[in-house]
Design a protein around this nucleic acid. Structure first.
Lengths: 141, 141
DNA sequence: CTGTATTCTTGATATTATCAAAAGAACGCC
DNA sequence: GGCGTTCTTTTGATAATATCAAGAATACAG
C-alpha cells in the first residue's frame, strides 16, 4: 500500500513536517483502518515495536485533522475517534455493542445536506449519525 | 410553566419514581433550556439553593434518557450534553466558539433520513450535526 | 403506617484530555 | 555533509469527565 516514503510526501504536500510520530500515526490509521481512539493508536504503534507518547498522538491527530487528511468521526460523546479522510461518509452506531459502521454519503460531499433554512451562520459540513441496532446484536436478542 | 406537581406526574407517567433529584434535574433542564453538561446541571441546581451530587445527576440523566423524556445531544466527542426531548431536531455547532444552535427537523421524526441502502441493521434514529461558523463568529473574523 | 424495592449518596478510582517547559529533530541553506 | 533556526516531541503534572461499589435514605404499594 502506502510506503513510508509515500506517507512522508503526503505529509509535506499538506504543509507538515514528516516527523516520526506523524508518519507512524498516519500509517497505522491507513493500514488498520476503522475508527480509532488516541489510546488505540498508541497501542497499534506499540505493536509495531515503535514508541510514541499519548501526548504526541494528541498533537499529531490534531495537526493531521487541521491539515485535512484525518477526520474526527462524529459518533456522539465519549472518546474522540479518528480515521483517514478519504471520502465523505456518515456513521452508524449500534446502541447495544457500540460498533461503528461507515455509511457512504449519497452525494460524497461535505455539505451533503441543504443548509438549514433561515440560519445565519455558514455550514461547512453536515455529518449524520444513524443510531440503532446492528445486525449481529439484533440476532442475539 | 411546569409546576413541581406536573413534573412529578410526568415522571410517573413514564414509569419513574418521582424522587427529589429527578424532579430537580428535569425542572432545571426544562426551565434553563439549552444543552447542559452534568456539571452545569449540578451548578444550576445549586443556584436554586438545592444540593445534589454529581453522581446522582449521572444516574438521573441516564434514567430520564432511557425513559425518553431527555435526550443526549449528538454534538461530537467531549462532555455529554443533555436537553429535554420535546420535538426531534438537529444541531449546528460553531467550530470557533463551540456554541450550539437547534436546527428544526423538516420531518420532525427520529428516522428523518432514509435508512442507508443495503444496510443490515435497524436504524432507530438519524441525527445530523451541522458544523461551520456561526453568525457572530463570522462577523468578528 | 409499615415493608420492600428502588434510588441516592459517599468516597474511591478509572478514563480521557490538556498544560508548560525543556530536550530533540526536520528542513533550508551554504 | 554540517549548521542553525524553527517546529515537534517528550516529560511530568494536572484538569476534566465518567464509573464503581456498598451502605443510607426514600418513594410508593398495600
Amino acid at each position: 500500500m502506502a510506503s513510508p516514503r509515500d506517507v512522508r510526501e503526503r505529509l509535506r504536500d499538506v504543509g507538515l513536517r514528516a516527523t516520526r510520530p506523524r508518519v507512524l500515526v498516519y500509517e497505522v490509521l491507513r493500514e488498520a483502518g476503522g475508527h480509532r481512539s488516541v489510546d488505540e493508536i498508541v497501542g497499534l504503534i506499540r505493536e509495531r515495536g515503535q514508541s510514541v507518547t499519548r501526548m504526541s498522538v494528541y498533537n499529531v491527530v490534531s495537526d493531521l485533522q487541521a491539515a485535512g487528511i484525518v477526520m474526527c468521526a462524529d459518533t456522539g460523546p465519549g472518546r474522540a475517534l479518528y480515521e483517514v479522510g478519504e471520502t465523505w461518509h456518515h456513521h452508524f452506531v449500534c446502541r447495544v455493542c457500540g460498533s461503528i459502521v461507515d455509511i457512504p454519503c449519497v452525494t460524497g460531499k461535505k455539505r451533503c445536506l441543504d443548509s438549514p433554512p433561515a440560519f445565519g451562520g455558514t455550514v461547512e459540513e453536515a455529518q449524520v449519525v444513524f443510531r440503532g441496532v446492528c445486525e449481529t446484536c439484533a440476532i442475539e436478542t
